[in-house]
Amino acid sequence: MTAIRRLTLQNVRSYAALDQRFDGRSVVLTGPNGSGKTNLLEAISLLSPGRGLRSARLSDVRRQGADGFGVGVSLGTDADPDETRLSIRSAPPRPERREARVDGQPASGPGAFLDHVAMSWLTPAQDRLFVEGASERRRFLDRMTLTQDRAHAQASAAYEHAMRQRNAALTGPRSPDPRLLTVLETQMAESGVAVAAARRATAAALARGYEGLREGAFPGAEVALEGFLEEGLAIRAASDVEAEFQERLANGRRRDAEAGRALTGPHRSDLHVTHTDKAQPARLCSTGEQKALLIGLVLAGAAARRDQADVPLILLLDEVAAHLDQHRRAALSDILEQLGCQAFLTGTDAELFDAWGARAQAFAVSEGTLTERG
């Protein structure tokens, strides 16, 4: 199985330096709060498009007093543990930019790593995903979509870029050029429909993924997408939805100029999850049920992409076992083994991971160092 076999860190938060080998099994990291467990997961997550599992600025990731930082992983198998090397660094004169490399050669950015590895994660900050604002749910959905469709990163970036340019043109000191706005709105319509279509495909994939999970371990979930584009694609051809979106943008220029932002598009969509066994919206479920629903969604996503064997999936599960009973912890261990993907799990108590036994490589984390447990 292709997995992370080596992790190197330089000046990443609490880690002055780290060079750690892994044997391809899942990795359990335990230690007291503040020991560096989440910092390690965050470092790995930076090898993915976006701002990592904490959505932090690179200046916050950099160890205090350092000029820059670096993160590197080797992906491989037992036969070739260093088959592919991915790395990023941040250094003057552009400390807020990640310089990416694949096997030592410059890459366009972390988006290039999607050809080699996919990542999904859960953190305690996401425990309120179903009861807070739509933006966090969109981020969660788009992260899930990236594990299913590598092109989603490019479409999302193209949409955001065109939208920012249109916003600047509409709110600038000069009257906007209608021809420029038409070009930008065309780009927004094309990329926006691609974003919405990828999200819909992910929702369908999650439904398939649930069928392959151990029945009863985690609650089933029904995923619904709320948004003009996503709902339109359910009943009309993509070309028709694209044309209608472009028309809405053109007709809404004055309104968007007054608001200072685009008021319609996939950046306004939302994700709704229903606990299928109870026919109850996730936002109305208990805290424990919401946590189980989140874990189930991530596992269903992993199950849905098992046929994508060319790109391994890495799961980063921060404090995931703390709110699970013994039965669900054992089920999680069994499902991860069944899915055949490497997971990095953190917790304060080693006993929470007894169900993993020899199926995971366990480390004690203390003051930015890792010590393998016997």
Rank of each mutant, 00 (worst) to 15 (best):
F113K: 01
R283N: 14
R268Y: 01
Y15D: 10
S333K: 06
A16S: 14
R214D: 12
R101K: 08
T8R: 15
P95T: 10
E211K: 12
A3Q: 01
H267T: 09
L324N: 10
Q10S: 15
R63T: 08
S333I: 08
R199P: 09
R150S: 13
G31C: 10
Q280Y: 11
D307L: 13
Q105G: 01
Q126K: 10
N11I: 06
P178Y: 01
G368F: 06
D142L: 07
G192H: 02
A322W: 10
T287W: 13
A237H: 14
D318T: 10
R5K: 04
G347Y: 06
T84V: 14
S55N: 15
A100G: 01
R174Y: 05
Y15G: 12
Q246S: 11
R101D: 10
P110H: 01
L225H: 05
P266D: 08
G133K: 03
L293V: 05
G347V: 08
A238D: 13
A196W: 04
D177I: 05
L213G: 04
L345W: 03
Q308S: 12
L75E: 00
E160P: 09
L352Y: 13
I295M: 12
G227Y: 04
T287S: 15
A330N: 11
H272T: 15
D103I: 02
A343G: 06
G172F: 02
D270V: 12
Q187T: 14
L324V: 12
G260K: 01
A155N: 07
L7Q: 04
T287P: 13
T123K: 07
F218V: 03
L370K: 02
P95W: 01
L213M: 02
